[in-house]
Design a protein around this nucleic acid. Structure first.
Lengths: 220, 220, 220, 220
DNA sequence: TATGAATGAGCTTTCATTCAT
DNA sequence: CATGAATGAAAGCTCATTCAT
């Protein structure tokens, strides 16, 4: 967590620093990111940086928190009023809303995604907690679905979560690789072609899961 | 490619160096890998290192080549005599044989996987070619399947490849994350539980693909 | 150009660093100059060096700028009030004033001269611009002389410039080789013997040029 | 001086090594020349190099000796039978024959010239002796001219030598800078334009010297 | 005589972090 | 709070030279 001094800063200055950090992590990843360049691009002094943040990890964690917070707000706003969706419909809505959100702040998404999905997979300690968060959320979602009677209780929850995470990552990576090449990302996301690709991917997963529901049960 | 001097080395010394390199890349990834540490762990001098290899990338490429070579030999040995498999059976065989192979040299697999699937996704130039290789292989496999009449010609090949790669990566990552925690990796891979997980994942993909073959066609 | 941090330094420290740099380039030339030695002789850390300068070339360019600046000031001060000199008298004044100036900071002159007249002749890119400066100045001087009617318009300007540059370099080298052996350089420069040598050299050139003005014309 | 082992080598191998050395010094100068690259380009082993030569300086000195030897032979061959030339005619012949010679082995000339006229001017110890050789030769030439009664005995010999050396260097540098850009160097040297430039330079010097012969006398 | 593996000091440059002002 | 000078370890890499075979 950034130090209090950081939050006391005028908003504009805070944004400048955050943007420089986003740029740096998006461009170089976590390991190769340079605090030297961040302070140079922020226009703040090196000393100031260390009065705002503990170290490189601290800035990055702040970006994660920002992303999580913004994402939550975005999802709250867009949440469908009618809850007559089954779990697969809900997952599909989540994925699509997620891509819409990604378009609103693609650079930040890129920075976090690059680190957590790339290097972070292997760092263990530092980023494990963050990756577990989404695991927990998906687990809760499926368990809720079971409780609601939408999903067969014999389903292997961990396995379902693993599959869903795989698709999350795959689609996120697709967004990062293809979307970042576009000029107008939002337009690209909403384009018929992109939607079609996503739809097909989700259909594969969905029908795969449904069809194999009998197979798809835990022995434990 | 390492220089000739490297191949002139006694095998034991070569192995020591290679092992130190594997350890380093597996532990730190490519960017953060330190040649200083590699030479320290190999017990060779810095000067010697640069008489064996061009640079850091050169060592790493050698590891890739080693892996590719060993993998090919392993697959040659295990190749099923009867070829009455359809494409999905073949893919399933490939995945399972791949995991068996991974167990024979898990640390090397980890080193390469970490870099190519982690950092490498974003580095572009240096590792792009290696990642394209597997894409090409999968594309060829599916096209062959179409020619054989096993797969509906209207299938969107690129999309199918993308899905298969996603599963390759997912299973590879699963192996890396879970398998590396085990004491006896081969035993873990061959255990009923692990096989079951892999089976279920593959069923999901297979039935998903089959079921949605009608959806799963390219409009273009 | 050195970074701002360098100019913020107390003058004494700046001088210490500059002197160490002058010594290094004078002693070893550009290519063989060692930043390690410069920082050791300056008493600053290696990290500090790179907070003051971009790289080795940057320090050296700073020395060039210093020399150019000091030289200009020196020439401004000494500029003759009466301008009734013809071009040859002016050139003679320039050469002699140049040698007087060289005596005021011989080590700096040696450092720059060694690099620009020595290695720099073959490096091309890095130092070309600096050498072209003096060429341009001489060209302008001669063209001005032609416009003033002092010099026959049919003179081959490029050739005349080449000859003058040759003498500049020759006299500069003479200063560097002979002068640096002296204990009191200024005294040596002002001595009757040295002045006589220079005078004779200049006479040779001057009468050579005058006498051959008819030959000394461009056919183009 | 190279060791005996070097001279025991078959001529072809010796030439290969020499050519690699010429290339290296011509391309990088003395200081930056790399023995590593020389042996790589020669196809000999590093150990062999040190059995042929003491060190880098030793190879270079061998190149100087070669150049001196070849130059002498070339001049012997071309020496004019009639000796009815005065000193200036002789000097002119020397310069022109020198340029012809340079064209026969321009790369070697470039290598030596770059070092002796560039870096070497300031190295002092290592190359001083070689530069003194040409000084001695010119001194001898003028003294001989005096003895023959061609030149006024009151001429300041050292000064005349200095002027002649300046022109030697200037013309040599001109050859190096302009000539090396040409495709057919010999053709360029013999072209009317090049000859004209050289002629004019020599006229300037010659008439300058003649005209100022009265001034051009030593007081000592 | 020939080899080439081995070496360690050296190179330029970047890094995260501290601390006196 | 803000500053930015100072630092030394570490990075990747090249060097001339030695020496056992």
């Amino acid at each position: 967590m950034p130090k209090q001094t950081f939050f006391n800063l005028p908003e504009e200055k805070r944004k400048t620093i955050v943007n420089a950090a986003i740029y740096e992590f998006a461009e170089y990843g976590f390991e190769a990111a340079s605090i030297n360049r961040i302070v140079a691009n922020s226009g703040i002094s090196k000393g100031s940086f260390y009065q705002y943040f503990e170290d490189k990890l601290d800035v990055f964690k702040h970006l994660i928190d920002m992303l999580a917070h913004e994402k939550m707000e975005f999802f709250m706003d867009k949440h469908p009023s009618s809850t007559n969706m089954d779990t697969f419909q809900y997952y599909r809505w989540m994925i699509k809303t997620g891509m819409e959100f990604n378009s609103t702040n693609p650079r930040l998404v890129q920075a976090i995604g690059r680190v957590l999905l790339g290097e972070g997979m292997y760092y263990g300690k530092d980023f494990e907690e963050y990756r577990k968060q989404s695991t927990r959320a998906l687990t809760a979602m499926i368990q809720q679905a079971i409780e609601r009677g939408e999903v067969d209780p014999s389903v292997d929850v961990d396995l379902a979560v693993m599959i869903m995470e795989t698709w999350n990552n795959a689609i996120s990576t697709y967004f990062l690789n293809e979307g970042m090449k576009q000029r107008d990302i939002m337009k690209w996301v909403r384009s018929a072609k992109t939607q079609e690709v996503i739809d097909k991917l989700l259909y594969v997963m969905e029908y795969g899961l449904r069809k194999t529901e009998s197979e798809f049960t835990s022995a434990t």
